[in-house]
Amino acid sequence: MYIILVYDISLDEKGSRVLNRIFKLCKKYLTHVQKSVFEGEITPAKLKELELQLSDLIRDDLDSVVIFKNTNKRWLEKSYLGISLEDELSNFF
C-alpha cells in the first residue's frame, strides 16, 4: 500500500513537543517529503501500528492527521509548483 500522510499540529505551549514526536514517528515508517508531509510504501499492519501511535500523540481537539491511501504508487501522478523537488526526490518518480 502506498500512502501520503499530512499533519497539522497546533503550536501552543505543548505543540512543539508534539510536533517533534510526530515528525520522528513518521520518519520511522515513511519518507519525509516536505515540512509536514510524508509518503511511502507501508504494509497494512505497519499502517495500523503507525495510526495507533499517532492517535496516542495527537491532541484530538487541536491536531489533525490525514492519510491518503492507494493500493499502488503507479496510480499516483505528481506535479510540483514553486521550488523544484525533483533532484531531492528523484527516487519517487
Rank of each mutant, 00 (worst) to 15 (best):
residue 55 S to C: 01
residue 29 Y to R: 15
residue 45 A to F: 06
residue 82 G to L: 07
residue 37 V to H: 04
residue 47 L to H: 14
residue 18 V to T: 08
residue 83 I to A: 03
residue 92 F to S: 12
residue 55 S to I: 00
residue 2 Y to F: 15
residue 36 S to H: 04
residue 12 D to L: 02
residue 53 Q to G: 08
residue 23 F to Y: 13
residue 51 E to D: 13
residue 56 D to V: 13
residue 25 L to M: 10
residue 88 E to Y: 09
residue 33 V to L: 08
residue 66 V to R: 10
residue 12 D to G: 06
residue 61 D to G: 02
residue 20 N to S: 14
residue 68 F to M: 12
residue 36 S to F: 04
residue 77 E to Y: 04
residue 17 R to G: 00
residue 51 E to C: 07
residue 51 E to V: 14
residue 76 L to Y: 08
residue 79 S to E: 06
residue 32 H to S: 14
residue 2 Y to D: 10
residue 28 K to R: 15
residue 69 K to F: 12
residue 31 T to Y: 13
residue 84 S to W: 01
residue 71 T to N: 09
residue 10 S to F: 12
residue 5 L to C: 08
residue 37 V to A: 07
residue 77 E to D: 07
residue 42 I to Q: 10
residue 43 T to Y: 02
residue 27 K to N: 15
residue 1 M to T: 07
residue 87 D to W: 05
residue 61 D to C: 02
residue 50 L to V: 07
residue 25 L to C: 14
residue 73 K to E: 07
residue 27 K to E: 12
residue 91 N to D: 15
residue 3 I to L: 04
residue 39 E to K: 08
residue 21 R to I: 03
residue 42 I to M: 03
residue 83 I to E: 05
residue 81 L to F: 11
residue 1 M to D: 02
residue 82 G to A: 12
residue 42 I to K: 00
residue 1 M to G: 09
residue 59 R to P: 08
residue 72 N to R: 03
residue 11 L to I: 13
residue 6 V to M: 11
residue 33 V to T: 10
residue 88 E to R: 13
residue 77 E to N: 04
residue 57 L to R: 00
residue 17 R to Q: 01
residue 7 Y to P: 12
residue 48 K to Q: 09
residue 74 R to Y: 00
residue 59 R to K: 09
residue 37 V to R: 05
residue 38 F to I: 08
residue 55 S to F: 01
residue 29 Y to Q: 15
residue 15 G to A: 01
residue 82 G to I: 11
residue 44 P to W: 06
residue 44 P to T: 03
residue 26 C to V: 08
residue 27 K to Y: 06
residue 31 T to Q: 13
residue 48 K to N: 14
residue 88 E to C: 03
residue 81 L to E: 11
residue 30 L to F: 15
residue 51 E to H: 11
residue 68 F to Q: 06
residue 54 L to W: 08
residue 67 I to Y: 06
residue 22 I to L: 10
residue 79 S to G: 02
residue 81 L to S: 07
residue 8 D to L: 11
residue 38 F to A: 09
residue 4 I to L: 12
residue 47 L to Q: 13
residue 58 I to W: 02
residue 55 S to P: 00
residue 9 I to A: 04
residue 39 E to H: 07
residue 81 L to Q: 10
residue 21 R to H: 12
residue 48 K to G: 03
residue 46 K to Y: 10
residue 29 Y to I: 14
residue 92 F to E: 09
residue 52 L to T: 09
residue 36 S to L: 02
residue 31 T to W: 05
residue 65 V to M: 09
residue 35 K to T: 00
residue 46 K to E: 03
residue 10 S to N: 05
residue 51 E to L: 04
residue 68 F to I: 06
residue 30 L to N: 04
residue 34 Q to V: 00
residue 31 T to H: 13
residue 26 C to Q: 12
residue 21 R to L: 14
residue 78 K to N: 09
residue 44 P to E: 12
residue 69 K to W: 08
residue 91 N to Y: 15
residue 49 E to N: 10
residue 71 T to A: 04
residue 37 V to M: 13
residue 34 Q to Y: 06
residue 49 E to S: 09
residue 46 K to Q: 09
residue 7 Y to V: 11
residue 71 T to H: 11
residue 50 L to I: 02
residue 16 S to P: 00
residue 10 S to R: 10
residue 48 K to L: 05
residue 78 K to P: 04
residue 67 I to F: 03
residue 15 G to I: 03
residue 32 H to D: 15
residue 9 I to D: 00
residue 42 I to E: 03
residue 80 Y to I: 10
residue 41 E to A: 00
residue 56 D to E: 15
residue 67 I to M: 07
residue 93 F to H: 01
residue 44 P to V: 07
residue 93 F to D: 06
residue 48 K to R: 10
residue 46 K to P: 01
